[in-house]
Design a binder for these strands. Structure first.
Lengths: 339, 339
DNA sequence: CTGAAAGCGCTTACAG
DNA sequence: CTGAAAGCGCTTACAG
């Protein structure tokens, strides 16, 4: 059970521990020959750096934090997060950087978690998701000067990095596609109105509807859950002049909408076209399979990790724009009924 | 940016750093008065222990690891993991223990991750999910003497703790329920055959079918994905003497089955009863809503964390049995067509 | 009850 | 190119 340390390596190699440290870290100060011998010994006895010791003397914690502020049930059903995490991991684990995960109720708790992690020197940086237009986490992160990257639109007034995709273009493409199918009454079931990207998408939707001269844009806000998605759908479909096509802000709500339409005796896509704002296996699970906006979430996570690692290494904050979501056409969209 | 350390507290309080350490950790060696004064100062200047320092001198890393060895896509769609993680978190974060998460492809990679974490002294213990009957992780964990708890059935031949629920009883209840509805041809679409709990459930299913005198038990093995679940369903429903009821090993496959049945023109539950082995929002999303085995996954995660923390504290390995899954009856099960 | 000191396992100037 | 030493921020016997 005795821990293998550089002292043992130094003894076996007949050099000082300083030399061992230099050799192991690839820094100048030892001859190539010595370095090789030291590396061999380290390998042979299965040495691994103690992160505690390394963190204490160097100043890196070798960890980054991700705080998810959502109810566990919502997190569970939306496939987004696990895939995103998995993408982050792919980049981080290669560099022996741990991902610390915390699931909390709200932003207040998130701020608390961030403060503690930082004070304890557990993390070198932070990944921030689910940005709010007014986000209490940002001033705290700025004040503590924590390297951080937003999974979302850049905030030029901050020192934070950002990895984002062009939601406006994706919404535009969706509306254009539906209009080309002859739809004139298109509605949007949006997610949480406080969220940054929800707002961007709503704005894009409004602009697209107006641009096509389709009258007053019809948007219902929800909390992203199946319940509210279903309820919003029921409300929209009960109106006179009900929409012939609805855009949903995620996959879960679109699936719920399909159920509601079927219960109301409306055929999809015959009488109603449904378009999901996120793609996942869920969309393929149901009938008709759902037309959806797809993007590579794992790649998104991976890029986010890269931008964060650069920041931690002291490079200037970057904004990386990933690929715009593509429209994957399946069975839930078709020509407008009266078209 | 200067870090607040116990040195500063000691100076302000006019005592040694040793006294500060004792006071802050609630150990004897300082008077109550001194202790209170020290705590106040610490609070006032916002001191937080450096985990690196604490880990280096004490021998705790204050972290536990969870390695998920599954393809990211599967992980994403099954709501189980996020809820489980969220339950783990609830217990861990209260004790300032970090959850380190790693998502890998297979058990070989999982073993590698475990070895590294342990060698680097990043973790004090491990949560192990998705146990295989023959599981390469176990001998490694035993050899390294890592405190670990299985989210699954106890292994009496090991020093590992375990948190589990009685799958046999849950399967029994499901079969009994279907038999009471008059079903005589009941099949099971199982998950990955290598998994421990898959085997237990298959065995329980076989035993129940035989006990009820329903003839040769009909089991199809899959990989838990919607694709294979759908394919298995199609195969089962294409046979002469097709089943009138099918038990699925998770929620995702049951939803896929619903789609397949509808495509084949079979009414659910009129001609086919579907029972999902896991419950989640997915089951409520579809029509008919799926009858399912429900359990409190968050509580399961929380209990798992507790058993692990006990182990880490040096207590003897415990096996904790959680509540057996309850049958939540919804619209996908009904009396057998010929009953 | 309290203080002084060693030690955890590294990194990093600073001399040779 | 190499060695000896200080230091990171704590904990913990060991003396007083």
């Amino acid at each position: 059970m005795k821990r293998v340390t550089i002292v043992e390596i130094a003894e076996r190699a007949g050099v000082s521990i300083g030399a061992v440290s230099y050799a192991l870290n690839g820094r100048p100060g030892v001859s190539e020959e010595t370095r090789r011998r030291i590396m061999e010994i380290a390998d042979e006895i299965g040495w691994r750096p103690s992160l505690a010791a390394r963190s204490l003397s160097g100043s890196r914690a070798h960890g980054v934090g991700l705080v998810l502020a959502r109810p566990a049930d919502t997190l569970g059903v939306e496939p987004f997060f696990m895939r995103f995490i998995s993408g982050l991991e792919r980049e981080l684990s290669g560099q022996r950087i741990a991902l610390l995960l915390q699931v909390v109720e709200d932003h207040r708790a998130a701020v608390e978690a961030i403060r503690l992690w930082w004070a304890e020197r557990r993390i070198d940086g932070l990944v921030v998701t689910d940005m709010y237009a007014q986000d209490v986490r940002i001033p705290v992160i700025e004040e503590l000067r924590i390297p951080a990257v937003l999974a979302g639109r850049p905030r030029p007034d901050t020192r934070l990095g950002a990895v984002w995709t062009d939601d406006t273009a994706a919404v535009d493409a969706s509306v254009d596609y539906l209009v080309a199918l002859g739809h004139r009454r298109i509605a949007r079931v949006a997610g949480l109105p406080g969220l940054d990207h929800t707002r961007v998408r709503i704005a894009a939707f409004r602009a697209a509807v107006l641009r096509h001269g389709l009258g007053e844009p019809d948007v219902v806000e929800t909390d992203y859950t199946a319940e509210e998605g279903g309820r919003a759908t029921r409300a929209l479909l009960s109106r006179r002049g009900r929409p012939t096509a609805i855009l949903y802000d995620n996959d879960v709500m679109a699936v719920a909408a399909l159920t509601v339409a079927q219960e109301m005796g409306l055929s999809v896509p015959g009488e109603l076209s449904i378009l999901a704002g996120d793609d996942s296996q869920l969309c393929v699970l149901v009938r008709p399979a759902l037309t959806a906006l797809s993007r590579d979430i794992q790649a998104y996570g991976l890029q986010t990790a890269r931008v964060l690692l650069d920041l931690i290494d002291g490079r200037a904050p970057r904004s990386y724009q990933g690929n715009t979501a593509r429209l994957t056409v399946r069975g839930s969209t078709a020509a407008a009924p009266d078209g």
